[in-house]
């Protein structure tokens, strides 16, 4: 009885979820696609993932030490950032470049703006763009799966239509970034996150749906547009980042559709190699305005 009557300040009920448990779920959801990438691209892929994760965690640790802040590597967010970055890189990228990317993601994009929950864009995505702009040659070389001696191959989006069958595309037997090849495994990860209630499916559905619809209207190859390139990885794991996506359901719909339109426009009309990254970054920047525009009105309040 004494326990029940204890007087304390709110919150009185706590959900067992913590940052670490959510990040753990994300890592678990990413791992099938990551492991598949390692099988597909060999030892270099393993090294790349290890480099990204270790340098991201190290960067976070060193920053906290230097600024005498409480250590935050235990919340696993740096691990997720490193893993996401690695999955967005081609296996042809040198390890030191990947390490620079991790440092940019953690120090410049995340910690300089206030750490977890304050980054204005997705750190892994921004780091990928920084690498892409800095080392355009190295970042756009893609190895053909397993046949390690073959130097370059275009990703399915660049390839002439029809060269890759739907089956190969869906299960990921083609060139591309480490973790983006297998739409099937990424979808499994996404479904897991939705079931665990880590993410809501609104943003991925709107994002992918918009791209599919627009490419259908424009007469493009819908299957290649949806299952090729970084769309699955971006829509499920990058666009749903808590800090950089809208909080309201209506906002999430706007965000997803906006990402879809931008991706389509960039893929169709621009000379850039990857539309998804830029689309997500641009929409990330708009999130505060979307949040403001779609804010819930308290009941009974007059405008």
């Amino acid at each position: 009885m004494k326990d029940v009557l204890t007087v304390s300040s709110s919150p009185h009920l706590r959900h067992p979820d913590s940052t670490a448990s959510i990040m753990g779920d994300v890592i678990l959801a990413l791992s099938p696609a990551a492991i598949f990438g390692c099988v597909l691209f060999g030892l270099k892929a393993v090294l790349l993932i290890l480099t990204c994760v270790v340098s991201a965690v190290l960067a976070e640790y060193v920053w906290n030490k230097l600024l005498k802040k409480p250590n935050s590597i235990g919340d696993l967010s740096a691990v997720v950032t490193g893993l996401l970055l690695a999955m967005n890189l081609s296996s042809a990228v040198p390890l030191w470049m990947a390490a620079i990317g991790s440092v940019v993601a953690i120090i410049v994009v995340k910690q300089m703006f206030g750490g977890l929950g304050f980054n204005f864009v997705n750190p892994a995505m921004a780091a990928r763009i920084v690498l892409l702009v800095s080392f355009p040659a190295a970042m756009t070389v893609f190895y053909e799966p397993v046949r390690y001696d073959a130097v370059t191959s275009a990703t399915p989006l660049v390839n002439a239509a029809g060269e890759i069958s739907f089956k190969e595309l869906f299960f990921g037997m083609h060139g591309g970034c480490l973790g983006e090849t297998s739409a099937f495994l990424l979808l499994i990860g996404g479904v897991y996150l939705v079931i665990r209630r880590v993410i809501k499916p609104i943003i991925p559905l709107c994002f992918i749906g918009t791209v599919a619809l627009l490419s259908l209207i424009s007469g493009g190859n819908v299957i290649t547009q949806v299952f090729g390139g970084g769309l699955m990885l971006g829509a499920i794991f990058m666009a749903t980042d808590y800090t950089t996506s809208p909080t309201t359901n209506k906002g999430k719909i706007i965000f997803g559709i906006g990402c879809g339109i931008l991706t389509f426009v960039i893929r169709e009309f621009a000379a850039l190699t990857e539309g998804v990254s830029y689309a997500i970054l641009l929409m990330n920047i708009l999130v505060p305005y979307i949040n403001k525009a779609t804010m819930h009105k308290p009941f009974g309040v007059k405008k």
Binding site: W96, I100, V108, V130, V133, S134, F135, P136, A137, A138
Partner: peptide, 16 residues
């Protein structure tokens, strides 16, 4: 020795 980061020659690098 190393390939330079071209981003520093572009406007974002300038702002940074």
């Amino acid at each position: 020795f190393i390939s330079p980061m071209i981003v520093f020659l572009l406007p974002p690098g300038g702002f940074f």
